[in-house]
Design a binder for these strands. Structure first.
Length: 110
DNA sequence: CCATTGACGAAGA
DNA sequence: TTCTTCGCCAATG
C-alpha cells in the first residue's frame, strides 16, 4: 500500500508539493501538467493518499478551489483548518479563490 | 487479464 | 450555475 513512495513519479509529485509556500495552494491537475501529464490528476490524488508525513498535503485542492479529501486518512475539516491557519479564507460555499492563492512554480525549479 | 473505485477535470447540456 | 458524461490512471480483488 505505502510502496507508492518508491514510485519515481510519485516522488516528483511530493517534490512539487513541498515547494508550495505557506498560504498558497496548487491543484491536482496543475501538478499533473507540471509533470507533462506523466501522471494524471486522479493519480496525483492517489499519490496524496499515501504521501510521506513531511509533505504539506493540505496545500493541494481541486480545480474548483474546493476540498476533495474523502475522510480516508484525514477529515476534510482538518485540511480546511490547516489552510485557514495559514491565512487562507474560505467563502460561504466552502471554496477558496484560486486567483488569490494558487501557486505557480517555475518549471526550472522542478 | 478484467472490473471497479476513487483526495480529478474539461466539456456539454 | 449545477449536473452528467467521459477520459484519465494507480491500486485492489
Amino acid at each position: 500500500m505505502l510502496q507508492c513512495i518508491n514510485n519515481m513519479v510519485f516522488k516528483k509529485v511530493y517534490e512539487i508539493v513541498c515547494l508550495i509556500p505557506k498560504g498558497k495552494v496548487m491543484t491536482y491537475g496543475q501538478i499533473s501538467e507540471l509533470l507533462s501529464h506523466s501522471i494524471s490528476a486522479r493519480a496525483v490524488g492517489w499519490a496524496m493518499n499515501c504521501c510521506p508525513k513531511k509533505v504539506p498535503w493540505h496545500r493541494v485542492v481541486n480545480a474548483s478551489g474546493g476540498i476533495s479529501t474523502k475522510d480516508l486518512t484525514d477529515p476534510p475539516e482538518l485540511q480546511r483548518f490547516l489552510l485557514e491557519n495559514e491565512g487562507i479564507r474560505f467563502s460561504e460555499d466552502g471554496r477558496i479563490s484560486l486567483g488569490r492563492y494558487q501557486f505557480n512554480p517555475e518549471k526550472r525549479a522542478i
